[in-house]
Design a protein around this nucleic acid. Structure first.
Lengths: 213, 213
DNA sequence: TTGTTACTGGACTATCAAGTACAGTAATTT
DNA sequence: AAATTACTGTACTTGATAGTCCAGTAACAA
């Protein structure tokens, strides 16, 4: 979106880069960064795990930090993409829509992928502001924005009464970031699915009580 | 609470430990761990910052990891202590009480102390389960528990209608862990105080709409 | 075929930090 | 005073790892 799809076809001479190698590096790096964080992950281990020489990592990404940045940017958008799907939801059935959105968001913020990503990005807060900003904008902010768009539509349809859609969206999604999310980030035992369902129902009930038309 | 106040007066021979040095070490370590995390903080720097020899650090704490654990345990309880104060709140004025509790919790989860603590504890998730568990129990779980106790009292007083106090408490406190908290953890710009006040009011309004008697 | 670029694999350097050793000094008990 | 423990300061060992160098090989364009 920010960039035109393919700025230059780049018909250079010599052997072309192997895009599959690049993918393998990104995926291996993602696993290692998720599990150990930026500091403890070793480039040697990542290269070995990707089945690639260390020099290939450096010729493709330049440094460990830039590899980290590439990993974050590479996965943030697709991970969040599955969350809102707010475009397809019916503004006449807000309760149903909120249940769907909440269920997806809850699954996201309990999943190892997002938890690992959060931990590793929190670990570089301050040291790499651009990555943090990009992550925030492509991640939480975007999810909020899409839910807010839905709330606006429902408000126009008269099925909800939402004065400040961004605030309301933030509030709704926040409800899934409580103790269960803490436990996930700390790698403690997670609430079982029964408890998750109860939380989902209650969050929707609370929201409807406050914003129902 | 878990331990009797002073299990042994310990009248040993020789020079006694200097408790002030121990405090200086803990405080310096806290600053460094907050700012850089466990990995990047160096024991030499901590010792220098505390105005203490490195050997003193090791003879008091044994290792960097155990120093880290000591820091976390040392500060978790006091930090959270200021949060609920639910004991002193009037069960007949839940709206007022929730405003007070929410304001304190909001200030907490926006403050550098708690944010740094969260970042560093998230950084050792999995590697140091005991610290994570202790932090969780002394921190979020305890805050939840105290708010839940208040909600129970208000329910008995007939001013609120709360079937599941723990769930409701979790939901209420969660509302302050949304985008603003993300931004804090990522060291991005924080919402201004006007926005914080708006969030506080709205959170209380939403809660009252769902749980008001 | 030739020039050019991508990749391998291993050896190598440089750096940084955890933890130890040790010899001397300070404080405290008996 | 004597024994004992705490602390200092510096130098040291040890281990890990980011990043480089290099010689050789593979794949592609002209």
């Amino acid at each position: 979106m920010a960039h035109p799809p393919a700025p230059a076809p780049k018909p250079r001479r010599g052997r072309p880069r192997d895009p599959e190698r690049v993918r393998r590096i990104l995926e291996a790096a993602q696993r290692h960064f998720n599990e150990h964080g930026l500091e403890r992950a070793s480039v040697d281990a990542i290269a070995a795990d990707a089945g690639v020489s260390k020099m290939t990592v450096y010729s493709n990404f330049g440094s460990k930090e830039r590899l980290f940045q590439a990993v974050v940017r590479d996965r943030t958008a697709p991970v969040v993409a599955g969350v809102p799907g707010a475009g397809a939801l019916d503004p006449d059935q807000p309760e149903k829509a909120l249940l769907a959105i909440g269920a997806r968001f809850l699954a996201l913020v309990r999943g190892d992928d997002a938890l690992g990503a959060l931990r590793s990005v929190y670990g570089v807060a301050g040291a790499q502001p651009e990555v943090c900003r990009a992550f925030y904008e492509e991640g939480p902010e975007r999810a909020n924005g899409e839910l807010a768009a839905y709330l606006r539509r429902a408000h126009s349809a008269g099925t909800l009464k939402v004065r400040n859609p961004l605030q309301a969206a933030d509030l709704f999604l926040s409800m899934f970031l409580g103790s269960g999310h803490f436990r996930g980030l700390l790698k403690l035992e997670l609430p079982d699915s029964r408890e998750n369902r109860a939380l989902l129902r209650e969050a929707v009930r609370v929201f409807m009580a406050a914003y129902g038309a």
